[in-house]
Design a protein around this nucleic acid. Sequence first.
DNA 1: TCTAAATTTCGATTACTATCGAACAATGGA
DNA 2: TCCATTGTTCGATAGTAATCGAAATTTAGA
Lengths: 112, 112
Amino acid sequence: MKMLYHPDRAEIHLSSVLNALSDPIRLLIASEIRKSYEPTCGTIDVPVVKSTLSHHTRTLREAGVVNVRVQGTQRFLSLRTEDLELRFPGLLSSILDAFEASDEKKELMNAH
Amino acid sequence: MKMLYHPDRAEIHLSSVLNALSDPIRLLIASEIRKSYEPTCGTIDVPVVKSTLSHHTRTLREAGVVNVRVQGTQRFLSLRTEDLELRFPGLLSSILDAFEASDEKKELMNAH
DNA sequence: TCTAAATTTCGATTACTATCGAACAATGGA
DNA sequence: TCCATTGTTCGATAGTAATCGAAATTTAGA
């Protein structure tokens, strides 16, 4: 049983969160997580190979954006909505709402 | 008279804005601009040398976060508050409010 | 025209990061 | 126990970026 590092709420840093979400692929991952309830890595539809997806989910986890719940060989992903809302009010919603309204999402999906 | 590139409002991309603001120095610069009305590069208090500051203001400008107004040898900086609010509602405020409430700002000032 | 002031550009260095494929690890089921 | 599934780690590569000091640029003023 492997221990996955998740920063405590107080350890979540703004610049790390923004950095994690400044990559279009990671924005897409976060957006997919918000849409589907607790997807696994395997069900997330992103235009990269699985090792790259793994790298991105790790970045999101270590920044404090996502929580990873291990069950068997699967990892269930969820956004740390409450922690982020308490620490940076309004931030996550404004980012994901903006992303979903933007062209960036569509361009990524087309590349796939 | 040099032309400085500023993206049109519609050309401002979310990932570029987040990337620009994911650097602590640039968060500090944006925070200083919001506080003081149209500061020049020379009056902004950041713990880097002037050529590095120039690099950062360029990044912020090209991402569409700041407007640079040239007057003589000085460049007056302002946030593109209205453009950003129209394109990404609530985003800039939530970022800068979070930054100013955080420890990250204090740590940067101490390093100076 | 010369000089000082404000800022940028350039060159170099160092460090990080996105990506892939291959190998590895862990789990659950046949 | 063997195998398929799920996901991570590793090694390599290529691109990007933060930083500094020195040199260049641009403008205002003496």
